[in-house]
Design a protein around this nucleic acid. Structure first.
Length: 578
RNA sequence: UGCCUCAUGGUGUAACGGUAGCACAAUUGACUCUGGAUCAGUUUGUCUAGGUUCAAAUCCUAGUGAGGCAACCA
């Protein structure tokens, strides 16, 4: 028993990314009593995007891995930007991804009283003071990194004087920006964040959560470590740009420790620690809330949940399954290296998931009539089709068949290249699930466009199997002309035309918008497609994965189908190369 | 420039002093009632220069390149 324990403490599992190892080492060493508490701390000032999903998977994932818990906390210390609408949608998105914070929901605003108390304590112990310098003046006093700054004239005023001033700030006696509370640290530190950082500012603004109770609000650098400490968070993970803030984070934790305000859990004093990892970047999109907001406000997209947006809600409407997003987040890994992930990796993860789960249907997007001349005019019959070849339990369905069908115009070629295995005069193809068909002739209009494809079926090939076992290379999809239903579809493509829309700065990114990123068309589908419910996925064979849009559907209850992603198409890839 | 950080195929990541591996992308073939899926194969890499060591992607030194910080935003 004893030796077992020793082995555990000395050999943390040497696998997983660096943050995993960091936590594993703490657990093995018995730090915080071996408990792990993480947190995901969004500011409710925008919608969550795929970059946040990476952080969510990390924060909740590490908690689960070490049998701990992950808090959800609204980091709402700036009333000017935050709202309930954002907070509600953030919660919805996290749940949709499949994570649960249980009873551990927090709001920074709920800790304003304690933050205020800590600020007063700092003033009393001479570690904070009220400064009246204007922002311009302060900029000059703070100085540049290469040389020490200058002390604020208020730096050495007495605690009594500062306390009185701070209380008057709280009482609303001063206008915005005329005064602020600064931590008294080190004006000559090479780390700018140590040069007496502002920890409270005056903002006469109603907070979506606390209303008019406050007119002073804490700054991030002060609030965040307090939030972590008060909640008893053990491991606080954030993105790389906060690396230089870490000494200040630790400074605040030290002060709380001196004040005896750190949480004691099971006899262990919980001292939160911060570590940083690289944020996610994706090709062909932008990931900053600010820029996404610009797209929304300039009507370049249809809102935060436009299926072209890299937001969680946009991807949901596009038809990306939550598991695909989680698998993607796992596969990009956690490092400190600033990298850009190929969008195709995300798409491939989505295809992998949908290939397993989505039912197949036949739909024709660019129809041309195909007539089976040896099939009786008034006859119709039904053929069995497999719903999902990757999942036998999905069963089969019947597809109606008749003399006149629609097929893709692209599936016919007048002068086909040698490796074209589709319709051409004299060639035999398989009509998926139905029969073998040989094209005999076509009818063209005055412009040379094919209006009808004619041919004959092998009457012994019903169901699509060759009676003599001959191989037929090409199989094409079709719908029966008199049975087909018309469905609205939205074909989406990437939002930007270049891998890095910010290649010449964030002010010019809109010029790289892809004008062709949405294409609304009609398609003809087999009748069963009309029965799809909003929120269901489908693969239209040989075309792509589609998602019945939960927001829009027609009066006849046929949904609008958003194209989630195309199928891989090695024929198109090869032929476009030539 | 001051402080902090990072550097492995086209892209992203693994290797924790001992055979540079995996995924995506690219490419060849097999198979196939989706030119999908599946299976098999191929191509491409340790930023540079020194040092320590029997042995370095890994440790040390210097250089180079990239990023972050200098809001009363988070």
């Amino acid at each position: 028993m004893n030796s077992d324990k020793q082995e555990n403490t000395n050999t943390p599992k040497q696998q997983g990314h660096f943050l995993y190892q960091w936590i594993a080492a703490d657990v093995a060493a018995g730090k915080n009593g071996g408990n792990v508490v993480t947190r995901f701390p969004p500011e409710p000032n925008g919608y969550l995007h795929i970059g946040h999903a990476k952080a969510i998977c990390l924060d909740f994932g590490m908690a689960e891995e070490f049998n701990g818990r992950c808090h959800l906390r609204m980091d709402d210390t700036n009333p000017l930007k935050e709202s309930d609408e954002y907070a509600d949608n953030i919660k919805y998105d996290i749940k949709w991804l499949g994570f649960d914070w249980g009873e551990y929901f927090y709001s920074a605003a709920d800790m304003f009283d304690q933050m205020y108390q800590i600020a007063e304590n700092l003033i009393i112990s001479g570690q904070a003071y009220v400064c009246s310098l204007s922002q311009e003046e302060w900029k000059e006093y703070r100085g540049v990194p290469t040389e020490p700054g200058k002390e604020s004239p208020a730096r050495n005023t007495s605690p009594e004087e500062n306390l009185a001033l701070f209380r008057r700030m709280k009482a609303g006696e001063f206008a915005d920006g005329t005064k602020c509370l600064r931590a008294k640290i080190d004006m000559s530190s090479p780390n700018i964040h140590f040069r007496d950082p502002v920890i409270y500012r005056i903002m006469h603004a109603a907070h979506y959560h606390t209303g008019d109770k406050w007119c002073i609000y804490p700054m991030y650098d002060f609030a965040h470590p307090i939030e972590d400490a008060l909640e008893g968070v053990t491991h606080s993970m954030c993105t790389l740009e906060f690396e230089v803030h870490r000494p200040l984070y630790d400074w605040v934790i030290d002060r709380m420790d001196e004040m005896g305000m750190l949480v004691i859990r099971n006899g262990n004093k919980i001292r939160p620690q911060q570590r940083e990892f690289s944020r996610l970047s994706l090709t062909y999109t932008v990931m900053s809330k600010r820029l996404l907001l610009q797209l929304v406000e300039n009507n370049k997209v249809d809102g935060w949940d436009d299926p072209r947006m890299p937001t969680i809600c946009g991807m949901r409407r596009r038809g990306y399954p939550p598991m695909a997003i989680r698998n993607f987040c796992d596969s990009v890994g956690i490092t400190k290296f600033i990298s850009t992930t190929d969008f195709s990796l995300l798409e491939e993860t989505v295809r992998a998931e949908l290939n397993r789960t989505a039912e197949r249907r036949l739909a024709v997007f660019n129809p041309v009539k195909l007539i089976i001349d040896n099939y009786p005019e008034d006859q119709e019959e039904f053929f069995d089709a497999v719903n999902n070849p990757e999942d036998e339990s999905a069963g089969t369905r019947k597809i109606p068949f008749s003399r006149e069908l629609y097929v893709e115009a692209d599936d016919y070629m007048k002068d086909p290249p040698r490796k074209f295995f589709r319709l051409a005069i004299g060639k035999e193809v398989r009509l998926r699930y139905a029969c073998l068909f040989t094209c005999t002739h076509v009818i063209e209009d005055d412009n040379g466009n094919v209006t009808e494809i004619h041919g004959v079926m092998d009457m012994d090939s019903r169901g699509g199997t060759a009676p003599d076992g001959r191989t037929v290379r090409g199989t094409i999809h079709w719908v029966s002309a008199k049975h087909a239903v018309e469905i609205p579809v939205r074909l989406y493509d990437r939002l930007f035309t270049v891998e890095d829309p910010l290649q010449d700065g964030s002010s010019n990114f809109m010029k790289y918008l892809n004008e062709d990123s949405i294409n609304e068309v009609k398609a003809l589908a087999e009748p069963s497609v009309a029965k799809f419910k909003p929120g269901e996925h489908v693969q239209f064979e040989r075309s792509g994965y589609f998602f019945a849009d939960p927001e829009d559907s027609r009066p006849d209850n046929i949904p609008v189908f958003n194209r989630t992603t195309t199928l891989r198409d090695s024929w198109a890839k090869n032929s476009s190369k030539k």
